[in-house]
Simulated assay, not measured.
Amino acid sequence: MHQQAAETLDEAFERLHRTGSEFDDKLSNHGPMAVEALVHSGQWEAVPAWLDVYTTRLEPVARPTERIARDGWREALGDRARDGDWIALFTDEIAEQPWREVLALWWPRLLPGLPGGATHGVIRVGHAVRALLEAGESPVRLAEFAHAMAYFASSNQALPELPRLAGGRTPFDALDAVPPLPAGEKGHINRRLDFLAGWDRWLTATLSVRTADTPEEAQSLLADTVHAATLRYLRRGHGNAVMNVHGVTAPNAVLRVLPALPTELWIPSYTAAWATSSAVFAVYMAPEDGPEPPAPAADAAAAMESACAHGDEHVIKLADTAADVHARSDDARALSAGVLAAGLVRPLRE
């Protein structure tokens, strides 16, 4: 990463660490995720001005209230009121051992609750890990990792426990088989996800995907999951243009974390990411395909430049993931996803 770009990223993270993980009654602070995506894509010069607009609605960072005991963390899991306590815990953790060891210890503890906070906790971790892997360690990047892991912990919410995947479908075919939520089931994402526990149609479709027998297969199937989710957004994302973004970006966040994890954690990571993507689309996608998707951007750089000009944090994150999919698959349809989102979501400065 260009030195000035890395410095811009650190300055942005430092500025954002004075703000809370959420604002306006459980809306997630997307600032750290969006600025990392902009810097990664070469749009780092736009970051300070983007933050000037975005940070006006944020709230101060939560302060610690009570120390979380190392053997009592389960009681604080999923408690958003203790975000400041989780930040303090992970700050201590990374001061005592390398961040990869902290990640390896906590990832299996937090993974079952991946859907919590509408998946923003794991998405923030994915961006923080990519920053560390690409730009290297700095005190501010390590602090962002601590903040990201803290939000993953404080927003944790588990999906219904699933039996072992045992189907033969590809992620593309299995995601196409996932049914939309019945029209009468509405409300906050937590209520929608709770409905899935007793919905056999969703369970059958979700379990129909291929299982992974090796870490390498898990990585490949997870990449296919992200690809399939990007194409699903093109067809059904208009059901809720913002919320369906997370069915794409959450599994990609997990894919970004894999290289920093022990390989024995790759298979459960794929399973959790797949189930979460399936769940998000089930509860938010449109029941029917939308109009013909827009033409793709000329290339990934153009897609990110356009997303940056639009300014909405979800559009930026979706274009960032679409660029990853295009780089892996050369499927130009992926670059249409950000274009579609930009047409459906209100611009930041409107």
Rank of each mutant, 00 (worst) to 15 (best):
A69M: 13
A323K: 11
E350I: 04
A6E: 12
P215S: 08
A183H: 08
L114D: 02
F90T: 15
E93W: 11
S28A: 11
L51H: 03
A342Q: 10
R349E: 12
R235Y: 01
R192K: 05
W44N: 02
V248Q: 01
S208R: 05
A37E: 02
R18H: 13
H227I: 11
G187W: 14
Y270I: 06
G198C: 09
D24S: 15
G31H: 04
E66L: 13
A34T: 12
L51M: 07
G343W: 05
E217W: 05
D52W: 05
T211E: 15
A303G: 07
D289N: 15
G187I: 04
L103S: 05
H188T: 07
L165R: 14
E11F: 06
P98Y: 12
D79T: 01
S41I: 06
D173K: 14
E137I: 04
G184P: 04
W106K: 13
L27K: 14
P180A: 08
H314Y: 07
P215N: 13
V226H: 04
V242A: 10
K317N: 03
V178W: 02
R74W: 12
T249R: 09
F172P: 04
G113H: 01
T225V: 12
A69Q: 15
T230S: 04
E66A: 14
P115L: 10
T56V: 14
P215K: 15
H314S: 11
